[in-house]
């Protein structure tokens, strides 16, 4: 309990003054299947990036989409929607 803030340490009026602080919530633990992108097949259409509900696919400097596995929940939309069938869902090793 010690890390929880005291009442006078909270921002006023039920606000959160740290925009985007959900990044502190790592959601990798939700994942059962993990998407793996085969860059040989990827055509860089970026549909996976556009559809990702987790905002967990980033376009890297080389132009390929990369999954941020800290936030990927393994929903599988990227794999299902990839026109080039470049994304495979692999069962996560525990």
């Amino acid at each position: 309990m010690s890390e929880l803030k005291k009442w006078f340490e909270l921002p006023i009026g039920c606000t959160n003054i740290e925009p985007g602080s959900s990044l502190n919530n790592i959601t990798a633990g939700w994942r059962v299947f993990t998407p793996v992108i085969d860059e040989k097949k990827c055509t860089k259409c970026y549909l996976c990036w556009a559809f990702c509900p987790e905002n967990a696919i980033k376009i890297a400097d080389d132009g390929f989409p990369k999954t941020d596995y800290r936030y990927c929940k393994g929903c599988g939309i990227c794999s299902n929607e990839c026109p080039a069938k470049a994304i495979t869902m692999i069962r996560q090793e525990v």
């Binding site: 803030k5 909270l10 921002p11 009026g13 039920c14 606000t15 959160n16 925009p19």
Partner: peptide, 12 residues
């Protein structure tokens, strides 16, 4: 930008 009218759990 701030978030107003947050949800809180029993801890806050």
């Amino acid at each position: 930008p701030i978030t107003m009218g947050v949800m809180a759990l029993p801890n806050y």
